[in-house]
């Protein structure tokens, strides 16, 4: 792999997903959901929200209500990942779009 950041990203994604198996708690899920909601709000304010984030949050809440904490944990992690990546997209695109302009 050429890019060290990509490797880091993959490692962190793997770490995140393996945490679900350690036996998550409902509090951890709530914490993830609160962070996801905050990041998603930030993305929406930048007109960069992703359509998948809210459904992940809703599914996580439903899984939690059904007593399926591990599933809720995984869904909450996906909500947080997508929310954070949407904010990151807004930030990097504030400059990156200029490189795509025809004739630039």
């Amino acid at each position: 792999m050429k890019h060290p950041l990509a490797l880091l990203g993959m490692v962190s994604a793997l770490t995140l997903s393996s945490m679900a198996w350690a036996g998550a708690s409902a509090d951890e899920v709530e914490d993830l959901l609160a962070r996801a909601a905050a990041a998603h709000e930030q993305a929406l304010a930048l007109e960069h929200g992703w359509a998948v984030t809210e459904p992940f949050m809703e599914q996580a809440r439903q899984a939690l209500a059904d007593g399926n904490v591990d599933a809720a944990h995984e869904l909450a992690q996906r909500a947080l990942l997508t929310a954070e990546k949407s904010v990151a997209q807004a930030q990097s695109e504030a400059e990156a779009w200029k490189g795509r302009v025809l004739g630039s």
Binding site: K85, Q89, R100, L102
Partner: peptide, 21 residues
């Protein structure tokens, strides 16, 4: 408007320009 056109959006990461140029 131009910035919007060239800006990547969404989880799939496309700008308008990616599909239409």
């Amino acid at each position: 408007g131009k910035a919007f056109y060239y800006t990547r959006r969404g989880q799939l990461n496309f700008a308008c320009s990616h599909c239409h140029m």
